[in-house]
Design a protein around this nucleic acid. Sequence first.
DNA 1: TTAATCTTGACAAAATATATCGGGTATTGT
DNA 2: ACAATACCCGATATATTTTGTCAAGATTAA
Lengths: 143, 143
Amino acid sequence: MRITTQGDYALRCVLNIAAKDGSQPVCIGVIADEEKLPVDYIEQLLSKLRRKGLVKSLRGVKGGYILARDPSKITVKDVLEAVEGEAFEMICERFRNLKKKCKSASTDCVLRVVWMGLKKRIDEYLEAETIGSLLARAGTGSA
Amino acid sequence: MRITTQGDYALRCVLNIAAKDGSQPVCIGVIADEEKLPVDYIEQLLSKLRRKGLVKSLRGVKGGYILARDPSKITVKDVLEAVEGEAFEMICERFRNLKKKCKSASTDCVLRVVWMGLKKRIDEYLEAETIGSLLARAGTGSA
DNA sequence: TTAATCTTGACAAAATATATCGGGTATTGT
DNA sequence: ACAATACCCGATATATTTTGTCAAGATTAA
């Protein structure tokens, strides 16, 4: 079980934008350069973030990306979900999405209970961490 | 982020064995049949569980698998780790394993802190759940 | 000995993750 | 108007992981 580079990259992009003063949009080229990420790849990720309403984009010369709302209102979970779908997808849901049949998918399935509990834990944790809190932590060096 | 069918299947196999009276080993064919899982696939999973010391195997006629220790001493995390490696692998570690370079992998990386916190939450939860507790829950129907 | 059963490694197929590319659209500055 | 910059979007390509299958071998009970 792991988060993918998509989630990691997306978070780095958002953090990069958030760390700037916000007086002007940050363009993909700069982000890719500073974070050492493939520009064509994070372009897709930023598009997803935009469609989910986490960032806003401005086209043309002087264009780029800015956060759509206050960093403290953007959770780590928001960003992960934007690029990866659910932060934690239960295997039961996965089977459903793949049109496969989970033989034990009754509501009282013992494992289902475990996965639901795990999902709850994960979601709670990722909702508690925000871009704002990460930024503050980075600033104070108390990481 | 998700657990794979390997983890799910492995847990179903262990639960299946644990649910029996233990007077005789359970063979793969029976487990596969009862759990509706591909026999050749779970064969590999059970091999991993054996190598990790979670189950014991007996060959020949009347052979099969039995739990290596008390169900209450086998955690969900034990089973997941046996077949999937770490229950939650941090992206940083993954990069290392793939011999790739994570540019931001300094000890004070803000995201690293997040992943470490998440890993801790996940591991704690999965260590708290045991085959024994799941079995008890299934028995009482209080799921 | 024979049949049942685990053991092992190799192979194959499917799904996902990670990019890369090309052409299009909007905006700014001249 | 025009050129330069930068986002937009869909298609395609590659790599990796996941999932599943197969075949030959080893062990044991009856």
